[in-house]
């Protein structure tokens, strides 16, 4: 697709090429494919009947519900933040711009357990803010608000990280032209910016969602693990696994694996679209 085959490239002798491909495929099989197969094999190991009863177990359903609820709050919040931050750092020059871009990476570098602990220390009943909230009978930690808060922390870079490189590369010419032509801020965003960034935005949202649904370390610090109340799906997987209910654990795990696969599918689709857009028209007709 990219470069034409030439003899002036290394690694193109058939034996080198095919042994490297073979090695890579073996590694992919061992490291990625078989683990994925195992999840579904274990979920189905006790038969479809027990798969269904595992899925519709009261606590499993409660965990699914809570997980979806947390994602439904987290994703829109980080979507809005990501768009505003990306707009800010790619469309304006101001002192401290680089610092902001570095700060946004913090959640990626911080261990999830440390992230959970930070929130527990501040908002827990021993923390300076938490003590004040406790006097007002507001409990955030060991309850769903805490889970949402740490999930927002852990997932806040994804949308911005997808948008910033793209918006930087596209530059601001189109938008400046629209402003000169008299577009309002909202018109500008909806008619000029959004069409340009929609796929990156979608991918950012999908990534945010995948991580929000799957976050384990940070959530387990602030959750309190109350079955049916503050147990998210990943925590439920852990509980079942520790109860030696392996089939049950893998049933819930397979739901999470499906979300992961869906994420990969969306990513591939978006990349496929972008590759098509980048191809010149003549190439495009050739390839069909």
């Amino acid at each position: 697709m990219s470069r034409t085959q030439s003899t002036l490239r290394i690694g193109d002798q058939p034996w080198v090429k095919w042994s490297l491909i073979g090695l890579a495929l073996t590694l992919t099989l061992l490291l990625l494919v078989i683990p994925l197969v195992l999840i579904f094999a274990q979920a189905f190991s006790a038969g479809p009947g027990s798969l269904w009863s595992n899925l519709t177990d009261t606590y499993t359903l409660a965990a699914i519900g809570l997980t979806l609820f947390v994602a439904a709050l987290t994703v829109p919040l980080n979507l809005v933040f990501g768009v505003f931050l990306a707009w800010l750092v790619t469309r304006f020059e101001f002192p401290g711009r680089k610092v902001l871009i570095t700060l946004i990476d913090i959640p990626f570098a911080v261990s999830p357990v440390v992230a959970g602990l930070l929130y527990l220390l501040l908002y827990g009943s021993n923390g300076w803010l938490g003590g004040w909230l406790a006097d007002k009978d507001i409990q955030l930690m060991f309850a769903w608000p805490g889970i949402v808060m740490v999930t927002v922390f852990v997932t806040c870079p994804f949308v911005a990280r997808e948008l910033i490189p793209l918006m930087q590369q596209q530059g601001r010419d189109e938008e400046e032209a629209a402003v000169v032509l008299g577009a309002s801020g909202w018109q500008l965003f909806r008619k000029v910016t959004l069409p340009n960034i929609q796929w990156a935005l979608l991918y950012g949202v999908v990534l945010t969602n995948a991580r929000a649904v799957g976050e384990f370390g940070a959530v387990s610090v602030v959750s309190g693990n109350i079955r049916g109340e503050t147990n998210t799906l990943p925590l439920h997987v852990e509980l079942l696994y520790q109860d030696y209910n392996v089939a049950g654990a893998f049933t819930s795990a397979s739901l999470l694996a499906c979300i992961a696969l869906l994420t990969l599918l969306v990513k591939s689709f978006i990349e496929w679209r972008q590759a098509r857009q980048r191809m010149p028209v003549s190439d495009q007709s050739d390839s069909i």
Partner: peptide, 18 residues
């Protein structure tokens, strides 16, 4: 190529028990 991102997309607890 698509599968390469699986470890990022798969929740860590799922990776752990697997």
């Amino acid at each position: 190529d698509a599968l390469m991102d699986l470890p990022f997309a798969l929740p860590t607890a799922v990776a752990g028990i697997t």
